[in-house]
Amino acid sequence: MITDPLFYAAAVPAVVLMGLAKGGFSGLGLLSLPLMALVVSPVQSAAIMLPILIVQDVVTVWAYRRSWDRRNIAILLPSAVVGIVSGYLLAARVSDAAVTLAVGIVSIAFAVRRLILERRKTLPSPAKADVPRGLFWGGVIGFTSMIAHAGGPPFQIYVMPQRLPRDVFVGTGAVFFALNNWIKVPPYIALGQFTAENLATAAALFPVAVASTWAGVLLVRRVSGDRFYTLVYALLVLVGAKLAVDGARALL
Protein backbone atom coordinates (compact mmCIF):
# COMPACT_ATOMS: atom_id res chain seq x y z
CA MET A 1 0.00 0.00 0.00
CA ILE A 2 1.16 3.54 -0.74
CA THR A 3 2.08 5.29 2.54
CA ASP A 4 3.25 8.69 1.27
CA PRO A 5 1.10 11.43 2.93
CA LEU A 6 1.45 13.56 -0.20
CA PHE A 7 -0.36 10.88 -2.20
CA TYR A 8 -3.37 10.94 0.15
CA ALA A 9 -3.40 14.75 0.13
CA ALA A 10 -4.27 14.46 -3.57
CA ALA A 11 -6.14 11.13 -3.55
CA VAL A 12 -8.72 11.98 -0.86
CA PRO A 13 -10.04 15.09 -2.69
CA ALA A 14 -9.97 13.09 -5.93
CA VAL A 15 -12.11 10.33 -4.42
CA VAL A 16 -14.50 12.89 -2.90
CA LEU A 17 -14.99 14.53 -6.32
CA MET A 18 -15.62 11.12 -7.87
CA GLY A 19 -18.14 10.32 -5.13
CA LEU A 20 -20.06 13.55 -5.77
CA ALA A 21 -20.03 12.73 -9.50
CA LYS A 22 -21.33 9.22 -8.83
CA GLY A 23 -24.03 10.70 -6.62
CA GLY A 24 -25.34 12.69 -9.56
CA PHE A 25 -23.15 15.75 -10.17
CA SER A 26 -21.94 14.38 -13.48
CA GLY A 27 -18.59 15.62 -14.74
CA LEU A 28 -16.80 16.32 -11.47
CA GLY A 29 -15.22 12.87 -11.61
CA LEU A 30 -13.09 13.85 -14.60
CA LEU A 31 -11.06 16.05 -12.26
CA SER A 32 -10.11 13.06 -10.10
CA LEU A 33 -7.51 11.33 -12.26
CA PRO A 34 -5.58 14.54 -13.04
CA LEU A 35 -5.42 15.23 -9.29
CA MET A 36 -4.05 11.77 -8.52
CA ALA A 37 -1.71 11.98 -11.50
CA LEU A 38 0.09 14.82 -9.70
CA VAL A 39 1.57 12.27 -7.28
CA VAL A 40 1.55 8.93 -9.17
CA SER A 41 1.59 7.97 -12.85
CA PRO A 42 -1.68 8.25 -14.83
CA VAL A 43 -1.66 4.47 -15.39
CA GLN A 44 -1.34 3.76 -11.67
CA SER A 45 -4.00 6.40 -10.92
CA ALA A 46 -6.46 4.62 -13.20
CA ALA A 47 -5.62 1.23 -11.68
CA ILE A 48 -6.21 2.52 -8.13
CA MET A 49 -9.40 4.33 -9.13
CA LEU A 50 -11.19 1.44 -10.86
CA PRO A 51 -11.82 -0.63 -7.66
CA ILE A 52 -12.94 2.60 -5.95
CA LEU A 53 -15.38 3.27 -8.80
CA ILE A 54 -16.80 -0.24 -8.43
CA VAL A 55 -17.39 0.30 -4.70
CA GLN A 56 -19.02 3.68 -5.40
CA ASP A 57 -21.19 2.04 -8.05
CA VAL A 58 -22.64 -0.25 -5.37
CA VAL A 59 -23.78 2.82 -3.40
CA THR A 60 -25.35 4.63 -6.36
CA VAL A 61 -27.01 1.55 -7.83
CA TRP A 62 -28.55 0.80 -4.42
CA ALA A 63 -29.68 4.43 -3.98
CA TYR A 64 -31.30 4.53 -7.45
CA ARG A 65 -32.26 0.85 -7.75
CA ARG A 66 -35.90 1.76 -8.52
CA SER A 67 -35.11 4.70 -10.82
CA TRP A 68 -33.38 3.71 -14.04
CA ASP A 69 -34.33 3.25 -17.67
CA ARG A 70 -33.95 -0.34 -18.90
CA ARG A 71 -34.34 0.55 -22.57
CA ASN A 72 -31.34 2.89 -22.50
CA ILE A 73 -29.19 0.25 -20.82
CA ALA A 74 -30.25 -2.41 -23.32
CA ILE A 75 -29.39 -0.13 -26.25
CA LEU A 76 -26.11 1.28 -24.96
CA LEU A 77 -24.43 -1.70 -23.32
CA PRO A 78 -23.77 -4.03 -26.33
CA SER A 79 -21.96 -1.37 -28.34
CA ALA A 80 -20.16 -0.14 -25.20
CA VAL A 81 -18.65 -3.62 -24.88
CA VAL A 82 -17.45 -3.36 -28.48
CA GLY A 83 -16.03 0.09 -27.74
CA ILE A 84 -14.14 -1.13 -24.66
CA VAL A 85 -12.65 -4.08 -26.55
CA SER A 86 -11.70 -1.77 -29.43
CA GLY A 87 -10.08 0.65 -27.00
CA TYR A 88 -8.07 -2.16 -25.41
CA LEU A 89 -6.88 -3.48 -28.78
CA LEU A 90 -6.07 -0.04 -30.16
CA ALA A 91 -4.64 1.50 -26.97
CA ALA A 92 -1.10 1.53 -28.34
CA ARG A 93 -2.14 3.00 -31.71
CA VAL A 94 -4.66 5.68 -30.76
CA SER A 95 -3.62 9.04 -29.35
CA ASP A 96 -5.25 9.71 -25.98
CA ALA A 97 -4.80 13.41 -26.65
CA ALA A 98 -6.72 13.36 -29.95
CA VAL A 99 -9.62 11.43 -28.39
CA THR A 100 -9.69 13.77 -25.39
CA LEU A 101 -9.67 16.87 -27.61
CA ALA A 102 -12.49 15.53 -29.80
CA VAL A 103 -14.67 14.60 -26.80
CA GLY A 104 -14.04 18.03 -25.27
CA ILE A 105 -15.04 19.97 -28.40
CA VAL A 106 -18.20 17.90 -28.98
CA SER A 107 -19.19 18.24 -25.30
CA ILE A 108 -18.82 22.04 -25.33
CA ALA A 109 -20.80 22.42 -28.57
CA PHE A 110 -23.61 20.18 -27.32
CA ALA A 111 -23.89 21.75 -23.85
CA VAL A 112 -23.67 25.37 -25.04
CA ARG A 113 -26.36 24.75 -27.67
CA ARG A 114 -28.67 23.17 -25.07
CA LEU A 115 -28.09 26.01 -22.59
CA ILE A 116 -28.93 28.62 -25.26
CA LEU A 117 -32.10 26.76 -26.23
CA GLU A 118 -33.04 26.37 -22.57
CA ARG A 119 -32.55 30.10 -21.97
CA ARG A 120 -34.74 30.92 -24.98
CA LYS A 121 -37.32 28.35 -23.85
CA THR A 122 -37.09 26.72 -27.29
CA LEU A 123 -35.92 23.24 -26.32
CA PRO A 124 -37.21 20.60 -28.76
CA SER A 125 -39.54 17.88 -27.55
CA PRO A 126 -37.75 15.21 -25.47
CA ALA A 127 -35.93 12.72 -27.70
CA LYS A 128 -36.55 8.99 -27.48
CA ALA A 129 -34.00 6.30 -26.69
CA ASP A 130 -33.56 5.21 -30.31
CA VAL A 131 -31.41 2.27 -31.36
CA PRO A 132 -29.19 3.78 -34.12
CA ARG A 133 -28.04 6.75 -32.02
CA GLY A 134 -27.78 4.59 -28.93
CA LEU A 135 -25.54 2.03 -30.62
CA PHE A 136 -23.30 4.79 -31.96
CA TRP A 137 -22.97 6.63 -28.66
CA GLY A 138 -22.63 3.39 -26.70
CA GLY A 139 -19.59 2.53 -28.80
CA VAL A 140 -18.17 6.02 -28.28
CA ILE A 141 -18.73 5.75 -24.52
CA GLY A 142 -16.95 2.39 -24.28
CA PHE A 143 -14.05 3.49 -26.47
CA THR A 144 -13.44 6.85 -24.77
CA SER A 145 -13.85 5.25 -21.34
CA MET A 146 -11.13 2.71 -22.12
CA ILE A 147 -8.77 5.07 -23.97
CA ALA A 148 -9.14 8.38 -22.12
CA HIS A 149 -11.41 7.69 -19.09
CA ALA A 150 -13.93 10.10 -20.63
CA GLY A 151 -17.12 8.07 -21.03
CA GLY A 152 -19.31 10.49 -19.07
CA PRO A 153 -19.71 13.30 -21.64
CA PRO A 154 -20.77 11.00 -24.53
CA PHE A 155 -23.31 9.37 -22.19
CA GLN A 156 -24.74 12.78 -21.34
CA ILE A 157 -24.88 13.82 -25.00
CA TYR A 158 -27.04 10.79 -25.79
CA VAL A 159 -29.27 10.63 -22.70
CA MET A 160 -29.81 14.26 -21.65
CA PRO A 161 -31.98 15.26 -24.68
CA GLN A 162 -34.47 12.61 -23.48
CA ARG A 163 -35.20 14.85 -20.46
CA LEU A 164 -35.64 11.89 -18.15
CA PRO A 165 -36.72 12.67 -14.59
CA ARG A 166 -33.69 13.62 -12.50
CA ASP A 167 -33.54 10.38 -10.50
CA VAL A 168 -34.05 8.24 -13.61
CA PHE A 169 -31.24 10.06 -15.43
CA VAL A 170 -28.83 9.61 -12.50
CA GLY A 171 -29.96 6.01 -11.90
CA THR A 172 -29.54 5.05 -15.55
CA GLY A 173 -26.00 6.41 -15.50
CA ALA A 174 -25.30 4.59 -12.23
CA VAL A 175 -26.41 1.20 -13.57
CA PHE A 176 -24.77 1.66 -16.96
CA PHE A 177 -21.37 2.70 -15.62
CA ALA A 178 -21.46 0.01 -12.93
CA LEU A 179 -21.74 -2.60 -15.69
CA ASN A 180 -19.23 -0.69 -17.82
CA ASN A 181 -16.64 -0.68 -15.03
CA TRP A 182 -16.92 -4.45 -14.46
CA ILE A 183 -16.43 -5.03 -18.18
CA LYS A 184 -13.18 -3.01 -17.95
CA VAL A 185 -11.76 -5.28 -15.24
CA PRO A 186 -10.41 -8.04 -17.57
CA PRO A 187 -8.53 -5.55 -19.80
CA TYR A 188 -6.99 -3.94 -16.71
CA ILE A 189 -5.92 -7.37 -15.46
CA ALA A 190 -4.48 -8.18 -18.89
CA LEU A 191 -2.51 -4.93 -18.79
CA GLY A 192 -1.05 -5.95 -15.39
CA GLN A 193 -2.40 -2.91 -13.56
CA PHE A 194 -3.97 -4.66 -10.55
CA THR A 195 -0.89 -5.02 -8.36
CA ALA A 196 -1.09 -5.78 -4.63
CA GLU A 197 0.05 -2.22 -3.84
CA ASN A 198 -2.64 -0.62 -6.02
CA LEU A 199 -5.44 -2.82 -4.65
CA ALA A 200 -4.40 -2.22 -1.03
CA THR A 201 -4.25 1.54 -1.65
CA ALA A 202 -7.72 1.49 -3.22
CA ALA A 203 -9.07 -0.46 -0.22
CA ALA A 204 -7.68 2.18 2.17
CA LEU A 205 -9.73 4.81 0.31
CA PHE A 206 -13.01 2.83 0.32
CA PRO A 207 -14.49 4.61 3.41
CA VAL A 208 -13.98 8.02 1.78
CA ALA A 209 -15.45 6.67 -1.46
CA VAL A 210 -18.65 5.41 0.21
CA ALA A 211 -19.18 8.52 2.36
CA SER A 212 -18.68 10.98 -0.52
CA THR A 213 -20.99 9.02 -2.83
CA TRP A 214 -23.80 9.08 -0.25
CA ALA A 215 -23.18 12.81 0.16
CA GLY A 216 -23.56 13.25 -3.60
CA VAL A 217 -26.85 11.31 -3.61
CA LEU A 218 -28.27 13.41 -0.77
CA LEU A 219 -27.18 16.72 -2.29
CA VAL A 220 -28.58 15.90 -5.75
CA ARG A 221 -31.98 15.08 -4.29
CA ARG A 222 -32.14 18.62 -2.88
CA VAL A 223 -31.89 20.10 -6.39
CA SER A 224 -35.07 20.50 -8.45
CA GLY A 225 -35.32 18.67 -11.77
CA ASP A 226 -35.10 21.78 -13.98
CA ARG A 227 -32.19 23.29 -12.07
CA PHE A 228 -30.46 19.94 -12.08
CA TYR A 229 -30.35 19.80 -15.89
CA THR A 230 -29.11 23.39 -16.14
CA LEU A 231 -26.38 22.60 -13.61
CA VAL A 232 -25.32 19.45 -15.47
CA TYR A 233 -25.17 21.31 -18.80
CA ALA A 234 -22.98 23.97 -17.17
CA LEU A 235 -20.71 21.29 -15.67
CA LEU A 236 -20.49 19.64 -19.09
CA VAL A 237 -19.24 22.91 -20.62
CA LEU A 238 -16.52 23.12 -17.95
CA VAL A 239 -15.56 19.48 -18.30
CA GLY A 240 -15.53 19.77 -22.10
CA ALA A 241 -13.27 22.81 -21.86
CA LYS A 242 -10.88 20.94 -19.59
CA LEU A 243 -10.78 17.94 -21.95
CA ALA A 244 -10.20 20.19 -24.96
CA VAL A 245 -7.37 22.08 -23.24
CA ASP A 246 -5.74 18.86 -22.00
CA GLY A 247 -5.98 17.25 -25.44
CA ALA A 248 -4.66 20.33 -27.24
CA ARG A 249 -1.71 20.69 -24.85
CA ALA A 250 -0.77 17.03 -25.24
CA LEU A 251 -0.93 17.27 -29.03
CA LEU A 252 1.21 20.40 -29.08
Rank of each mutant, 00 (worst) to 15 (best):
P13K: 12
L17P: 02
A21P: 02
G24S: 09
F25Y: 07
S26Y: 13
L31N: 03
S32E: 05
A37H: 10
A47W: 05
I48Q: 03
I52N: 02
S67G: 00
D69Y: 09
A80G: 11
V81T: 12
V81E: 03
G83H: 00
V85M: 07
S86E: 00
A97H: 08
A97W: 00
T100R: 03
V103L: 04
I105M: 11
L115M: 15
T122C: 13
A127W: 05
K128D: 15
P132G: 09
R133P: 06
F136K: 09
V140R: 00
I141V: 15
G142S: 06
M146K: 02
A150L: 08
G152S: 05
G152Q: 07
F155G: 04
P161N: 12
R163D: 12
P165Q: 12
R166H: 03
V168T: 15
F169C: 06
F169Q: 13
F177D: 00
L179S: 09
L179V: 14
L179G: 05
P187G: 05
P187R: 07
P187Q: 10
Y188H: 08
Y188L: 14
G192Q: 10
A200Q: 14
A200D: 06
A203F: 12
F206G: 01
A211Y: 04
A215Q: 02
G216C: 07
R221H: 10
S224I: 12
G225V: 13
F228S: 09
L231N: 00
L231P: 00
L238I: 11
L243M: 14
V245F: 14
V245Y: 14
L252W: 07
